[in-house]
Amino acid sequence: MVLRSQPLGESDRIVTFLTRSAGKVRAVAKGARRSKRRFGSNLEPLSRVRLHYFEREGSDLARIEAADLLESFYRLQEDPERGAILACMAEVADAFAREQQEDESYFRLLHAVVRAVRDGMDLDLAARYFEIWTLRLHGVLPSLSSCARCGNELGARGGVYDRREGGVLCRRCAPGRPPGGVVLPGQAVEAAGDILRRAPEALIGREVAAHGLAPLADLAEVVFFDLTDRRFKSYEVLRALRGSG
């Protein structure tokens, strides 16, 4: 799946793909901006393509021979807000996917969530689903069911994510809010449980209250920042679009 496509020189593009068998691949599409017959819309973000490429010795950029379109999500991104949410997923995937390392489960996650968005999954729920599972698949998701200190169930009282501990503490272990921490009310813990138990298509048509999802967005933002040391641009644009819309 295409994660991003950037202009290169006068007529080429550098395209970043998330592949089933080789993790993240960055490749040059020669003439992609000039000849529409060669690639058409195939290299637009999130297109699922059958990619034919060859690697070049001494270069970390491969060269695309062909990219046959298997599934397009172009129309899905025409809506600015939906497009921005999908861009957030692509940007996160670009940051977490490892080059030349097989990561089929991450590919399947992105594909399944984008398809679920196409089939009507709530946009915020889809975004949280992708974020939580990104952290889980990369082994960095803190437990969202039990306290990282005492091991007790978080339950309906929820908990607090403590950055220093790198885990969620129950309200007894953390009665206040640690600096930079995220309060996760019971509804957020419940929503996370749903996300971790079900496939994205099983959540289509499901509405989760904003007060259940918003703390999970804050949690993902904090953990992403601690792991990558940067803020994702797409999230800023999404906020601007929502603010102006």
Binding site: K233, S234, V237, A240, L241
Partner: peptide
């Protein structure tokens, strides 16, 4: 243009 991946928003 509005390009989230490049950080370009409507403003």
């Amino acid at each position: 243009s509005i390009a989230p991946l490049r950080g370009m928003g409507p403003d």
